[in-house]
Amino acid sequence: MPSAFKKALDSGKFIVTCEAAPGKGTNLENMKHHIELLKDKVDAMNVTDHQSSVMRFPSLGGAILVKEMGGEPILQMTCRDRNRMALQADLLFASSRGVNNVLCLTGDSVMLGDHKEAKPVFDLDSSQLVAAVRTMEKGKDMAGNELDGGVRFCAGAIVTPEANPIEPQLIKFEKKLEAGSEFIQTQAVYDMDNFKTFMEYARQFPVKILAGIILLTSAPMARFMNKNVAGVTVPHGLIDEMASAPKGGALKKGIEIAGRMVRQIKEENICDGVHIMAIGKEEKVVDIMEAAGLL
């Protein structure tokens, strides 16, 4: 049976997803608070997998928690820490616990996180992980052995529409689609004209695309992303707008900008929905949705 998220994707409605980020440790109160606040307002919640290569409570545990609390989880799986055996095993476990959406990612370098000396795995890449999901759905594991009890997932991947150079990125994007991705969540986009150009190209493929929206919290944070986050460009105009906010009002301004972008994407039907990343300020997703006129 298709997942609730898959049904939402197929319904043609404007999709909203957000993130639930597990913390470091067994105290899940903050995450539970965010799940409670958002589960009935969004179509699905991505549960991040050791985000930025920082060791935390596992994404699979977090996805099960979302499910138990009545939400719709999207299990983020990176290829950074597990080989093909461990990834397949976790997919079986996820399926057995009703977690039926998966976002397949390559994963950040181990060196960028808090366990820099750990052994990086990368046995598979993101497109191969999508293909592995599709193989398992046919009742076989990657080695061709029969599975006793199968799986069914709504599988997706990501793309960076503002990557430079873009051509190699688009070749990889097309491979992810060929491997069987049903949805794509993008890296953060801020320049809507650039994003429209990307969508003109992407519309030729039968895949649902959710535009990545990262909440700007201050002008320095925007400048930091421009300098340090690959494939993310906050235009100078938006940085100036953030800087123009009155003292103590930067976050409010960021919510206003994010809400405005979501509204424009929906009203102009630029793509199929949005994936809102509020990074540590998940409760503000509600405010962004209100600003966008979605609530």
Binding site: P120, F122, A163, K175, A230, G231
Partner: peptide, 29 residues
């Protein structure tokens, strides 16, 4: 490629350089 990827670049590639070191070329570029 820092991650040994065989199907193209990861999302960390930046202006033809690797996400771990701006002095290292992105193999897939």
């Amino acid at each position: 490629c820092h991650k040994g990827l065989v199907n193209g670049p990861c999302g960390g590639t930046n202006n033809g350089k690797c996400e771990i070191d701006a002095n290292k070329d992105c193999a897939w570029t």
